[in-house]
Design a protein around this nucleic acid. Sequence first.
DNA 1: GGATATCTTATTAAACTGCTCGGAATTTGT
DNA 2: ACAAATTCCGAGCAGTTTAATAAGATATCC
Lengths: 150, 150
Amino acid sequence: MKLSTRGRYGLKAMFDLAQHAGEGPISLKSIAERQDISEHYLEQLVSGLRKTGLVKSVRGAQGGYVLGREPSKIRVGDIIRVLEGPIAPVDCVSEEDPECCEKADYCVTRTIWEKVRNSISEVLDSITLADMIQDAAKKENERKYYMYYI
Amino acid sequence: MKLSTRGRYGLKAMFDLAQHAGEGPISLKSIAERQDISEHYLEQLVSGLRKTGLVKSVRGAQGGYVLGREPSKIRVGDIIRVLEGPIAPVDCVSEEDPECCEKADYCVTRTIWEKVRNSISEVLDSITLADMIQDAAKKENERKYYMYYI
DNA sequence: GGATATCTTATTAAACTGCTCGGAATTTGT
DNA sequence: ACAAATTCCGAGCAGTTTAATAAGATATCC
């Protein structure tokens, strides 16, 4: 039940883009440095994000990437689905075209995996990049407050 | 974010044992046949379940396995943790000895994975083998009711 | 034209998955 | 005592996936 680096790195990259929203195109190189990810590997991940419109690219010198829409309109679930595929602890409860066995109708374990899938989707779809930015600001504030009392 | 066959097969096997609770030791061979799993492979999975006390073994002819405690006292989460390891979408939020990076304190993506982990644990720990038996009986009843009206 | 980027495809080493195989140890029934 | 049934244990292995790396083509700015 592990997420691969695709989802992890991809979300970090998207969060990085959200933090720099409005600053023009952000190069993969700078993202890779800040988030400590291989630039070439990141290219592959971002390729998928571009094809689904979650980011837009600007080619050439001073080029880079910008978010495809407002941070508040991009859910973490949107990103994870692009990078990791449809959310599904097992294939027979996949969000899209599930490959079911013939026992699916009365399979008791299957209903469990459905519940797991739903709870994961619910969490990931309840958080947007805007929420993450807000959360980061809050954490930063708490840190400052803590420092003040030392 | 996929479960391996270890967790899937293991849960099926435990459910099978629960369905035959009170009938004495159940052989792996019969479980493997009913659940359509390789017997040798199942051996490996059950080995872990035995070591943690979720099942007890009876060696020799007419031997087999029985549940280590009442079905109502065995949660799905207990089984999955034995077979798949601690629940954690990423290592830094593992239920036991998480391997954190130095940014863990203020990492925004980490809090997301924590929420995912908690929601998964909550689902898996809210369902016991007894619940599954009850669910199966309910499904069977519905099927009969449906047949009656045809 | 040169520097800076994004794109695209191919290759790869290592790890993981899902088994299979062989055999030892233990118990039951004849 | 012996055969059959069964759990136990460890090794091996083919295929897939992961996480990169590499090399170059293409586009844009200055």
